[in-house]
């Protein structure tokens, strides 16, 4: 069973991502959602997700602070950053810190599904 943790300070975004799960190539269950990095770390410890979608601009602990901690604690999980920050430097930095993919908001359903399916393929069976 594949497990997804959604991290975004916008509830609208969290629900949008959750609605797309039914369109993925494999069955993925939403096991947690978090509105900032601190909540994300706590939720990930409890739920042990395989997939994590992560916003960058969030209160308390932002996404760039959170990526290396999630990556360290959950080395087998795939992390997809979904952020409004559209400059190349931020994308490169997120990937260097441990993210496995980067999508710029606003994101279409098709781009999001393709990106998540791509990360699912990378997961070890």
């Amino acid at each position: 069973m594949l497990k997804l943790l959604v991290v975004d300070d916008s509830g609208v975004m969290r629900r949008l991502i959750a609605r797309l799960l039914k369109n993925l190539d494999q069955e993925v269950f939403l096991v947690g959602s978090a509105a900032d990095g601190e909540e994300a770390l706590s939720s990930a410890r409890r739920t042990q997700p395989n997939l994590i979608t992560l916003d960058l601009t969030m209160p308390n602990m932002d996404g760039l602070e959170t990526v290396p901690l999630l990556s360290r604690d959950h080395p087998n999980a795939r992390i997809l950053v979904i952020s409004a920050l559209a400059d190349k430097a931020t994308c490169i930095r997120a990937l260097q810190l441990g993210a496995h993919g980067f999508l710029t908001k606003p994101v279409s359903e098709e781009r999001l599904i393709n990106a998540m399916n791509g990360l699912i393929e990378q997961l070890e069976p």
Binding site: S10, V12, M13, T57, S83, A84, L85, A86, D87, T90, T104, K105, P106
Partner: peptide, 12 residues
């Protein structure tokens, strides 16, 4: 969220 996206995107 719209404000966040519009302001973040101009970083391009």
């Amino acid at each position: 969220e719209v404000a966040n996206v519009l302001s973040g995107n101009v970083r391009r």
